[in-house]
Amino acid sequence: MRDALVIAGKTYTSRLLVGTGKYRDFAETRAAVEASGAQIVTVAIRRTNIGQNRNEPSLLDALPPSRFTYLPNTAGCYTAADAVRTLRLARELLDGHELVKLEVLGDPHTLYPNMPETLAAAETLVKEGFKVMVYCSDDPIQSQMLEAIGCVAVMPLASLIGSGMGILNPWNLQLILEKLKVPVLVDAGVGTASDAAIAMELGCDGVLMNTAIAAARDPVLMATAMRKAVEAGREAFLAGRMPKKLYSAAPSSPTEGKIAPKAA
């Protein structure tokens, strides 16, 4: 397959990963995910509504696990212990499924990652056989630590979760991309299509987003825009952009063969 994304030995043609939260209903979730072309979708693990389960529609019916790779997350976890428990439940729930998204948050106000807890949880999960895609701060050193622990993908934030502020520190992302061998995906902070394109132009292996699509006025149209942006950004990265210079004095049209200037 040409230019495929490989995570934990599995090949994906789409480099856009999407969340499934904040949609109006499962029909909209399904339509947006389809439009995005994403093959990996994140899901959260939550308590069932005891006594209200009869005929309640289920996310698994809207997005059949046979068609999509589920990426259970640890959203809302503030300690390594809770994150590990959540993903053990996810593995049980999804019949031994090992690919997971680890995120351990530092505070409910900013949702900034707690890196010491993230590193501790990653250690445990990798030892237990999980294939860990890890949400983290855009810190090149801690990103390398996560790779050394054995995470299958490292996913630094572009900016804070749900902020839509875009890529705030392309230089740090570049340092991470230079150092790591595992796929590096931007996770969180993307607001619109150009943000996703910039992430891909920097050389990121993929982009994970939820709010940018779900909170758009027309989520399905934004999902389409994001699919194109990720593809365009990837192609621009592979094509190799021209160098930037303040001016070139080298026009694109021939300087030879111009008609004679009108005599004075």
Binding site: G19, T20, G21, K22, Y23, F26, T29, T42, V43, A44, I45, R46, R47, T48, I50, S58, L59, L60, Y70, P72, N73, A75, L89, A90, L93, L94, I161, M209, N210, T211, A214
Partner: peptide, 10 residues
């Protein structure tokens, strides 16, 4: 006891 399911999330 905790009884959990998969729900929409990012």
């Amino acid at each position: 006891l905790e009884i959990v399911a998969a729900v929409g999330g990012g």
